[in-house]
């Protein structure tokens, strides 16, 4: 708690990051990723632009998409150099930020209490289990009826989906904590609140972060679905809008952008997780490939 520096040796902060990055290039991992992406692009190109096999020839090829993407003067009007592209990314990211924060802020405490108190769980769990199986798309009409604006239904849908996942995983996280930690806390003289802060909270973190990884994916999924149905700006809107006017190149560009942005957001969640669970990182041996 207090002096963290008792017997901490080795690098920290930036130098630790550099050390880890350097080390990770010593393993085959990053190269494998490049090889994988390269192989995929090659196959895509081969099927689409070279052999022109149906149905692959019906979609824009990788060379075409990449040229458009990096073009200062895009044929279809959207590229890395046009403002609307960035505006759409910004709109979606902002929505994800709000929805994911809301879902986490509500879901984690709710899940913690559900896992911790049998009584509280008996009240809340049946409701959760009843609502959870309803597919997020089934909520669309209701959300439009409930909220008048453009923005609110989209946020509502993305939050809802992600909230269920987070709550459930957090609850399971608390239940997964070994009984002996509760007993140890008890015989060391803990009161109930100490058990909550020192056992329930940290003990459930591994599950919580697994849940958050899934939950951010689910948030993107429902966000894009909502944006496609009723949206102004956003990557889902971009996909749908370009589809409507047959700008298939722009559509594929938006899809790939979604892939990238989604990847980055889940990497951020992962990084936050390992930051908060140093104990786990270290126990697993950070040096392992």
């Amino acid at each position: 708690m207090s002096d963290r520096d008792v017997a901490t040796q080795g690098p920290s902060g930036l130098s630790l990051f550099l050390y880890k990055t350097k080390k990770s290039f010593g393993t085959p991992m990053p190269y494998l990723a490049f090889v994988g992406i390269g192989l995929w692009l090659f196959t895509y190109w081969l099927l689409n632009e070279q052999l022109k096999i149906s149905p692959f020839n019906k979609i824009p090829g990788p060379a075409e998409v990449l040229t458009e993407w990096f073009s200062q003067d895009p044929i279809w009007g959207t590229s890395l150099f046009t403002e609307d592209y960035w505006q759409n990314i910004k709109a979606s990211c902002l929505r994800i930020l709000i929805a994911f924060s809301l879902a986490t802020g509500l879901g984690v405490p709710l899940g913690l209490f559900m896992g911790w108190s049998k009584k509280f769980k008996d009240y809340t769990f049946p409701v959760l289990e009843l609502l959870r199986p309803i597919p997020i798309l089934a909520w669309v009409p209701l959300s439009i009826v409930m909220f008048q604006s453009f923005e609110a239904p989209i946020l509502f849908l993305a939050t809802l989906a992600s909230f269920f996942v987070t709550t459930l995983n957090t609850m399971l996280g608390v239940q997964s904590i070994d009984e002996s930690y509760f007993r140890a806390a008890g015989c060391l003289g803990s009161k109930r609140r100490h058990v909550f802060i020192h056992v329930v909270l940290p003990g459930s973190l591994p599950f919580v972060f697994t849940g958050l990884q899934i939950s951010i994916g689910v948030a993107w999924f429902s966000l894009v679905a909502a944006e496609m149905i009723s949206g102004e700006f956003g990557l889902g809107y971009m996909i749908n809008a370009s589809y409507m006017v047959n700008k298939y190149v722009t559509m594929v560009m938006a899809m790939l952008t979604l892939g990238f942005v989604g990847w980055i957001t889940s990497a951020m969640v992962r990084a936050a997780g390992s930051q908060m669970m140093q104990w786990r990182e270290k126990a697993l041996g950070q040096g392992g490939a």
Partner: peptide, 8 residues
């Protein structure tokens, strides 16, 4: 053993 794994 029941040392809290999340504490030093």
């Amino acid at each position: 053993g029941a040392l809290f794994p999340w504490k030093t």
